[in-house]
Design a protein around this nucleic acid. Sequence first.
DNA 1: CGGGTTTTTGCATGAATTTGCATACTTTTG
DNA 2: CAAAAGTATGCAAATTCATGCAAAAACCCG
Lengths: 250, 250
Amino acid sequence: MLKEERHKIILREINLHNKVLSNDLSELLVVSEDTIRRDLNELAEQGLILKVHGGAMSKTFHYPFNGQNQVYALEAKKVIADKTISLFKKDMLILLEGGTTIMEIAKKIPDDLQATFLTVSPQVALTLAEHENIDVITIGGRLAKNANIHTGASVINELSNIRPDLCIIGTNGISVQSGLTDSDWEVVQVIKAMIQASRKVAVVSIAEKFNTVQKIKISDITAIDYLITELPPESSVLSSYIKKEKPLLL
Amino acid sequence: MLKEERHKIILREINLHNKVLSNDLSELLVVSEDTIRRDLNELAEQGLILKVHGGAMSKTFHYPFNGQNQVYALEAKKVIADKTISLFKKDMLILLEGGTTIMEIAKKIPDDLQATFLTVSPQVALTLAEHENIDVITIGGRLAKNANIHTGASVINELSNIRPDLCIIGTNGISVQSGLTDSDWEVVQVIKAMIQASRKVAVVSIAEKFNTVQKIKISDITAIDYLITELPPESSVLSSYIKKEKPLLL
DNA sequence: CGGGTTTTTGCATGAATTTGCATACTTTTG
DNA sequence: CAAAAGTATGCAAATTCATGCAAAAACCCG
């Protein structure tokens, strides 16, 4: 059997069934597993497949949603992401909302972090799934078209049954007077439930959103444990948000 | 024996079997392997064949993966998508699984269709959300990394509480003997529950997957109402799958 | 036909590729 | 954390390959 012939059969198997085990291939092609491994490595180097422990997978599944439009204030959001990730510890149960800032966080999570993530956003779920060592659980429900997060009674209900260590929400409006605000009633209900469920709440927001107010109130600032922006904690914009040392600035 | 004559025979052999071994050719044509090698090199230079270690292979057979990250057998899947969409009617409740074929369906749904879609795949959910007039409900759960669909007890449980009009599943293996099969236990449980929940079940699969068997059984062919491939319904490959006019071929 | 030229062929040699095994190492799993 | 499964690495045997060369065959043209 020619090597290239094996390669074709392997590619076919993967394209047909999305994944293969070295074990099965070695039986199917009647060669040693070493040879199969060498084949898989070659195909992976050519970028045709994705090598994983014990076999290989189709690349097709991974990240079809990368062609996103440009993210506004991307650099600031990356800074926020790094700060936020410093809160993540091993074996934590972490609840993530949706939005572009949260997406940056999901992207930048270190590959060696072991933790379980819950999210109401399909995009965030898919991004999280790229990291080997984390478990991803999606809280399903009606997909709100504008925000692309799951909403509705079932989401609220599921949230009432969990108790995450930490919850990260990106807000639409934040001000000392009105607290956290948003413009979509359904989304507000979900975020309220998220805050209610979690032991600690972190709000991530670029400085530009500070002192803006939307139509519907989510919560007071006092309910927030961490407030994370791209600015240094001692920044003057932030000082007015602090009452009795809460929230903690990062 | 003239060189050109040998070349013709070699090309015929390759077109016939898609590959040749230098060894076999040397016996067949009663010349030394060196000569065969020289022949193969010449043919390869003319771009007629693909020279590989130990022999040569057909060039045309060199696989339907055009670029990288491309969907395998995309055209076939688009044909399947069109056929499948013809089953969708106004106000239906339709349950979709995941996978590249289902993704093509999700993309091609007409914008004027009013219906509610349920899915266990974040990718499918996001794609569906692009269409104005449909409601999208994600069934959440633990995100299985390899298949990118939600699995686990919560998914099974949620599925037991709904009764969709139609369920579309893409299978991993399908054969008359073993029915629908897959290689991932968690995924199998979900698909079983999907079939159980739904009034009608449609299976979509490219013809290439027919008569392949994976390790875990999902269901018998008799549980399927519609079987949709890129081939015309009268195709001979399909006839053996029909017992008592079920499933209906599209 | 025939002699010179070109092309083709087979062989020898050493180099390169491929494969399976042994070993030590890493990852996964219960 | 220990057993099991999977992986990387080096190595040796077998096969295949490139190259140079000389003999054989084919070709050309008068």
